[in-house]
Design a protein around this nucleic acid. Structure first.
Lengths: 214, 214
DNA sequence: CGGTAGTTCAAGAAAAAAGGTTGATCTAGT
DNA sequence: ACTAGATCAACCTTTTTTCTTGAACTACCG
């Protein structure tokens, strides 16, 4: 299924690659809880595969974020836009990351964030109520989602602490070190707004490094 | 308020023109029903001003279209995407036109259409329940919305009849004649899909005309 | 059967938008 | 006064979008 958002459907043509390689979500969950074959199948069967074209939004303020999505292929950016037009990137997600406006999803309230595809992408998404059923039906699923939340929380704590205690250049270096694989895939303006600096300043930091090296 | 949808906020800068010229909706409604000053103010006070960036959707399939919108500035395109990816444009709207997925709005069901901004735009929008209140509260408002619906219905009847009875070139000529002001503002692929022909064929029709003229 | 009205496909050209860089000027905090 | 960083404007590059064109194809009409 295609996510029903596209500016010009012509651009959809040629995006029909069928990567029918074994469901990556099944591998993923097994890293956290050990499921029987049937359980794993039950789990993944609650997810729907959706393809999203680059630059398309899967979440927008004003619309409730009804799904939690697992990125099979591609990249996403989650960000807020303030009244003055400034953007702040909260999260990037590539393969094997989850993406949603978590406040909107958890409370089923209208979103305040944007989530946009940075590349042509494929996600597996589960609907809110389906997730609730899943968790009720089996202790292990409950555990899985608990672990996801705890890991997410811990991650954000680390991020906040780091950002609070380091300057722009250090934040960039840190990102480079820990998320090298994101670097080539996220546009610089998005990274700058993730790291809390202007795009111009990030551009300068990068040039400084390059010059240093040579 | 900005409609909370934009790809890159950089592009928002310079979009803050303050056309604080008297509310155009107030002028508009007075063309159809004659309101006292207070009534006119009551009416417009039920609308919210929203800015929308080019290429942003204000309605998408799957989400209920909760507002009826009056275009203050800009241009919109309402279209459907069939399963095979083909797009069909149902309506264009520029200044002083209304725009919504009317089926979704009227019945408050999930939309099946896309509505996208073709330019940076400003709309005044009213929420469904607010509109109901308005209509109950004053006979004149009821009358106004009745007139809007009747005009809309008559318009669509004319359109359908014309389309059914004319070939591609005649449909284009007719559009040119009646909606000359739209021509420069809607992309050709969108116009082609409105007029029910391929973009290539429209391109040929246009060239034929140009050659004729000279 | 050939002609009209139109489609689809593929390749390119042209136009517009997105993304990135740079210099200059400014600012808040130490 | 310095530092870290922002803002603004101009400019360049790259990517995307939109439009055009030729060629081959289809469906119906008389």
């Amino acid at each position: 299924m295609y996510f029903p958002v596209h500016w010009n459907a012509n651009k959809l043509r040629g995006c029909e690659d069928q990567n029918m390689n074994k469901n990556p979500l099944q591998d993923y969950i097994q890293n956290f809880v050990s499921l029987t074959e049937e359980e794993a199948e039950q789990f993944v069967s609650c997810f729907e595969e959706v393809k999203v074209k680059k630059r398309q939004f899967i979440v927008q303020p004003g619309f409730t974020n009804k799904h939690r999505s697992f990125v099979v292929k591609g990249a996403f950016r989650t960000y807020a836009v303030l009244d003055d037009g400034q953007e702040h990137t909260l999260q990037f997600a590539i393969e094997n990351w989850w993406v949603s406006d978590f406040n909107s999803y958890l409370y089923q309230h209208p979103a305040t964030l944007f989530i946009v595809a940075l590349e042509d992408s494929t996600i597996l998404r589960i609907e809110y109520s389906k997730e609730q059923e899943l968790k009720e039906s089996n202790h292990k699923f409950e555990t899985f989602f608990r672990i996801m939340a705890e890991k997410g929380l811990a991650f954000e704590h680390r991020r906040i602490l780091f950002d609070l205690t380091h300057d722009a250049e250090a934040r960039y270096e840190n990102f480079l070190l820990n998320y090298a694989n994101f670097i080539q895939r996220v546009p610089q303006y998005a990274l700058a707004s993730y790291l809390g600096m202007s795009t111009e300043f990030l551009s300068r930091i990068r040039n400084k490094r390059i010059r240093k090296k040579s």
